[in-house]
Each structure stands twice: as structure tokens, then as C-alpha cells.
Design a protein around this nucleic acid. Structure first.
Ligand SMILES: [Mn+2]
Ligand SMILES: [Mn+2]
Ligand SMILES: [Zn+2]
Ligand SMILES: [Zn+2]
Lengths: 147, 147
DNA sequence: GTATAAATAAAAATAACTTTCATTTACATG
DNA sequence: CATGTAAATGAAAGTTATTTTTATTTATAC
């Protein structure tokens, strides 16, 4: 992501294009594994000289709120983040072993939303969908180990 | 849930049928809202005389592990639990306003699992699906307030 | 350049959970 | 029924991810 592109996205969201925000975005863009706030912090503070962990948390929150990045669900219940080029509605296939994230477009929940609304009389507002497993590489590795 | 039924479930899991476990199950069965460990604790300690919060956490973990109860995802990232009579694979429609949980059987992710496996070369092991919104009652209330 | 609201750092606080370890209890066995 | 044993529990302390607070700095509109 070009520096100016990041700045544009931030201004569109009504956020100032600060060096810290740009670094956080830079750190996540193109990264194919999901990262924790702590990991983002450790990666960027080398380059920024210094940045506070609360700042990283705040920036990640803002970006997630604005849907620039996504939250990934993990069994350890920590917060993890991932940025995808894909800006349309979609979900993720997440590797339990190496943390790789792969987009998939199929959602197929529009129909379900309708069914739930009509059968319960309620209103559907959002949904969480995440598929977990082993990516191709980890799947292969595991087979080798078993041999 | 009859006391003896609870005991049977626990023994089948290789767990001792202790008064604390039975109370936790009793507390959750038939409850139509999801509850936190803290809430379960406050409800049952009145009846048990005393029980430690770590014990409640341990019991809830065991029951969730054994799939006797389910974890509910919440924006506050606390752990919430819900028990459904329905023992088959299914998911939940959760009210963001009153915490009510409604089962829905449709999952429709078997096909998706296959597609992901064949397109990525990986292996699908599990998935998370939760639909959020407003239950019928809360949806009605909200409309009234808007008027 | 300057004013101003927004952003940040540093430190302290929070709170949800978890661990430890000494004591108690369910229950299998005789 | 008595009893041995592993499993379960309580109390207290510990952990740690995340958040709050407040004084200072900075992006940006004018
Ligand atoms: Mn979807
Ligand atoms: Mn499913
Ligand atoms: Zn992998
Ligand atoms: Zn409701």
C-alpha cells in the first residue's frame, strides 16, 4: 500500500493521517497471517522509534470499526487482526496451525437471514462466519509427520 | 432437567456427578438467555450455600468442551454460555438487545467446506457461525420507541 | 503561522480469567 | 457399609490482555 493511499483511506474515515496509523496499516497490508496488537506493536516500533501499545490498540479498533481490517476469532480469546485487499462482504478460512488467512467469497447467508427473520419474527443485523482448519501447506506437513 | 438425567450425562463424560456440576447444569437448562460465568455463579451460590468462581469456570469449560453447552460470541469479548436441548449440529440466532438465543438447524456449510478444501488444498476442521440481530420482542419494542 | 481538535505517551488501573495447593468428596471396590 | 484413591473444590494469589486517565504533542484547516 502506497503511503498516500493509506492517507486517503484514513481521511475518508475522518481520521488524521498520522505516521502511527500509516505504519499500522503498512504492517498489516499484504501480511497473510493474522496478528495480535502486541505483534503489530513489536513490528512497527522498530521502524517508528517508539509507539505506545495503547495507541496500537486504539488504531486497530478504529480500523476494525471502519472495516478496513477484520477481527479473527481464536481459541485463546485474544484479539487478532487481518487486512484483506478484498473490500466486498466475505469471510475467512483460517489455518489453526500457521495462522494463514484465506478469503472466500461465498457467504450464502442472505437466504438464512430471511428464513430466521420470518420464522422468528425478529430482525437479522449481522453474522459471524469463520471456517477453521489446516491450510494446504500445514495439511501436507501433518501428513508427513504422521508417516 | 431431572437431577438423575444430569448425573447420567456427567458420568457418560467420565465426570463425577457433584452437586456443583448438577447446579450449573440446572441453572443453564431451560434458560433462554446466554449467561456469563459470573452470572451463573451468582445464581447458584444462593442455592448451594457456597461455591468458588474458579469452580464455575472449570465446570463451564468442561461442559463446553464436551459440547453439553455452547459458547456465545459477544462484542465485549467475555465468555458466555448457553445450553440447548437440541444436540444435533446447529447454530444460534442471538438477540443483541436482550441476549435471547434461538436455535436454527440450517447450517449449509458442508458444501462450503468442500469448496474450500478443493480450492485451497487445505482441510476444514471446524467453523463458527452466529447470526445476530433483534428478537421478535425487541424488534417490536424498538419500533415503538422510534414512533 | 496559528488555533484547535484530535492523537499520543506513560503510567496506572481494570477485570476477566487462571493457577496453585491444601482440603474435601464421589464412588469403586471388597 | 467401610475405605482408598483419584478427582473435585475453595481460597488466595497471580496473570495478562486490554483500557483509562491526563498531560503533552501534532495534523490540518484557515
Ligand atoms: Mn457473510
Ligand atoms: Mn454449522
Ligand atoms: Zn497453515
Ligand atoms: Zn431480544
Amino acid at each position: 500500500m502506497e503511503r498516500e493511499q493509506g492517507a486517503l483511506i484514513l481521511r475518508r474515515l475522518g481520521l488524521k493521517a498520522t505516521p502511527r496509523r500509516l505504519e499500522v496499516m503498512q504492517c498489516l497490508v499484504g501480511e497473510r497471517m493474522y496478528l495480535s496488537a502486541d505483534e503489530v506493536w513489536n513490528r512497527i516500533r522498530v521502524r517508528l522509534g517508539s509507539i505506545g501499545l495503547p495507541t496500537v490498540y486504539r488504531i486497530l479498533d478504529e480500523l476494525a470499526e471502519a472495516r478496513v481490517i477484520t477481527r479473527i476469532f481464536s481459541a485463546d480469546r485474544k484479539q487478532y487482526f487481518f487486512m484483506c485487499a478484498n473490500q466486498e462482504h466475505h469471510h475467512h478460512f483460517v489455518c489453526d496451525s500457521c495462522r494463514r488467512v484465506v478469503d472466500f467469497a461465498q457467504c450464502g447467508l442472505e437466504g438464512l437471514a430471511g428464513e430466521i427473520a420470518s420464522s422468528t419474527g425478529g430482525r437479522v443485523l449481522s453474522h459471524i462466519l469463520q471456517v477453521n482448519g489446516l491450510c494446504a501447506e500445514c495439511s501436507r506437513t501433518e501428513s508427513e509427520v504422521a508417516r
